[in-house]
Each structure stands twice: as structure tokens, then as C-alpha cells.
């Protein structure tokens, strides 16, 4: 198990390095001089000082050397300055925005996982019944609805029409911080974010469970005289969860996409909003740093999924 984890961690670090190469190349592909990222536009520099800075930053060196230098700087958190907001260092700007996004995505994913798995089991057990049909229709429509669309419609319906939810933001401006205020702002976007994912998980869970229910070992369990509810919950569900865990891990990227759109719709002060604004304003250092941070998050989630998988499936330990 430990060996397996270490290996997964190693692969994760390698992938992060691959991403950093990609990001670096893209950074150098950007129009304009890379040195702009290191100049504080509010404090103009003389050409001599510029040449000195260029030399100090190693920008006169060949690309691989520059990459290593950039990597060394990035490793200690030096991603330069935002070109959009003068004099603001990139890293603190990005770090500030991580937690709102993690909160929104975590809540959305948690709802999606619980609802999706429960609905999937229900649909498989009641296959062909009215409730299964209703759930199937819900999941088909849910999968076909882009998150920004459900976001817009939800916002319009619950905030504009019903006026039961705040119309955006994470906290009421000016009011003192309270958990209830945060939850009140969180609940609508998190639920809307979870719709598409819950639909996907439900569908996978349902078909996976149906497949497992046809397996020989389920028949063996029934032949032992085990109660049907235990046959489903203990024998079948645990096996059926395996592909669903893989699915959750592999669609984490899509979930982040959904979060970016919803943050934009709900004015949620997270990475998505930061990123969209940065792209609109061509703020390359922020884009690069945000991309790396999101990439790291994706890799961490993937490692977590693999650990969960290994915990559910005893065969993994042998393969490692």
C-alpha cells in the first residue's frame, strides 16, 4: 500500500512538472517581452536597470536554463507581478482565491456524490419502474444542461423571481462574517453545480450496479440465503462503486470547468472569476500561476481517488 501511494505521488509530481513545462512554453509564446511580468509598471526603470534585471533574471540565457530558473523562482512562490493590477504579486492574489473555489466545488461534489450514488442504487433496484424512469429523464436532462445555463436559470428563478436566495457573491457586503451568511450564499450555486455531476454519477452507478447484480458472486450471496438488502448494499454496491470512483476522479476537470462558469454567473470570488478576468485582461502571469495551482489541485484529487479505490478494492495492493 505504501509503495503504491509513493508511486502515485511520484507520478503526480512528474505530471505537475510536465504541466509546468507546458505553462512555461506557453508563457514564452505570449506576445510581448517576458520581462514585462517582472516590472512594476508603477515604477518605470531605466534601460540599464532593465538590462541588469534581464541579466539577473537570466532572460538572456537559453530557454532550458530559463526554464530551470523560472522553476526555481516558482518553487519558492515567486510568480512575478500581475500586469493588470499594478504592483500586486501574483501568488498571494491566486492563493486568496483558492478557498472560495474549494468550498464551492467541495460542496457541489459532495452533494453530487451522495445524491448520485443514492439515486443510482434506487434506479438499479427499481429498474423499469416509474421512479427509475423519472430518475433517468432527470439524469438525461441534467447531463445535457451546461452548468452556466442551469446557473443562469437557477439564479433567475430563485433570486429574481422567488427572492429566496442572494443574487451572488460569497458574503453579504459590509455585514460581519457569519457562517449562516456563507451557507446562505453557498447553497444555491453548490446545488446547481451538483446537478450535472449528480446526473452523471447516478447513471454510472445505476448501470454499474446492474452489471454487478448479474455477476456470479451476487448469485452466490443469494444462494447463501443472505437478505436481499445486504446482497445489494454489502456485496453489489461495493463492487459497483469501483468504476464510479474512477469516474469521479476523471471528471474532476469537468467539475472545475463548471465551477469556473458558475463563479462567473454568481460573482463568486474564486479562481474561476480571477481566471476569466485575467484572460479578458491578458494578465499572463496570473493565468499561468492559476493554471499551475488548478493543475496541482486536479493531481491531488486524482491521488485521493486512487487511494479511495485502493481502499475499496483489495486487489490493488497486489498489483503495486
Amino acid at each position: 500500500m505504501t509503495g503504491y501511494l509513493l508511486r502515485r505521488l511520484g507520478v503526480g509530481i512528474l505530471m505537475l512538472l510536465a504541466l509546468s513545462v507546458l505553462v512555461f512554453i506557453m508563457l514564452r509564446l505570449t506576445p510581448g517581452d517576458p520581462i514585462d511580468a517582472y516590472i512594476n509598471p508603477s515604477a518605470p526603470m531605466s534601460p540599464e536597470a532593465l538590462a541588469e534585471l534581464r541579466r539577473r533574471l537570466g532572460l538572456d540565457q537559453p530557454l532550458p536554463v530559463q526554464y530551470l530558473a523560472w522553476l526555481r523562482a516558482a518553487a519558492v512562490g515567486d510568480f512575478g507581478f500581475s500586469t493588470q493590477r499594478s504592483g500586486v504579486a501574483v501568488l498571494p492574489l491566486v492563493l486568496d482565491r483558492i478557498w472560495p473555489t474549494v468550498l464551492l466545488m467541495g460542496a457541489g461534489l459532495a452533494i453530487a456524490i451522495v445524491v448520485g450514488i443514492a439515486a443510482g442504487i434506487w434506479g438499479a433496484v427499481r429498474r423499469g419502474g416509474a421512479s427509475d424512469l423519472a430518475l433517468s429523464i432527470f439524469s438525461s436532462v441534467g447531463i445535457s444542461s451546461p452548468p452556466f445555463l442551469t446557473g443562469l436559470l437557477g439564479l433567475w428563478f430563485f433570486s429574481t423571481q422567488l427572492r429566496v436566495a442572494p443574487s451572488g457573491g460569497m458574503l453579504t457586503p459590509g455585514a460581519p462574517f457569519s457562517l449562516w451568511d456563507l451557507l446562505g450564499h453557498l447553497i444555491l450555486p453548490a446545488c446547481l453545480l451538483s446537478i450535472g455531476h449528480a446526473a452523471l454519477i447516478m447513471r454510472y452507478m445505476r448501470s454499474s450496479l446492474l452489471e454487478v447484480l448479474g455477476q456470479d458472486y451476487v448469485r452466490t450471496a443469494r444462494a447463501k440465503g443472505v437478505r436481499e438488502v445486504w446482497v445489494i448494499l454489502k456485496h453489489a454496491t461495493r463492487n459497483a462503486l469501483l468504476p464510479v470512483i474512477t469516474l469521479i476522479g476523471s471528471t474532476i476537470g469537468i467539475a472545475i470547468g463548471g465551477a469556473i462558469f458558475l463563479e462567473s454567473v454568481f460573482n463568486w470570488p474564486g479562481m474561476g472569476l480571477l481566471l476569466v478576468n485575467a484572460v479578458n485582461g491578458r494578465d499572463y502571469p496570473v493565468i499561468m500561476c492559476a493554471t499551475l495551482v488548478i493543475g496541482a489541485c486536479v493531481i491531488v484529487v486524482n491521488i485521493l481517488t486512487d487511494i479511495t479505490y485502493a481502499a475499496v478494492d483489495p486487489r490493488i495492493k497486489v498489483a503495486a
Partner: peptide
């Protein structure tokens, strides 16, 4: 491993 939307955003930015 990387979110498609993120890559699309970078491409658009570039």
C-alpha cells in the same frame, strides 16, 4: 489530467 476548460482559456488568452 488537466481541465479542458482551463486549456481552452489559456489558448484563447494566447
Amino acid at each position: 489530467a488537466f481541465p479542458p476548460i482551463l486549456m481552452a482559456l489559456m489558448a484563447v488568452a494566447l
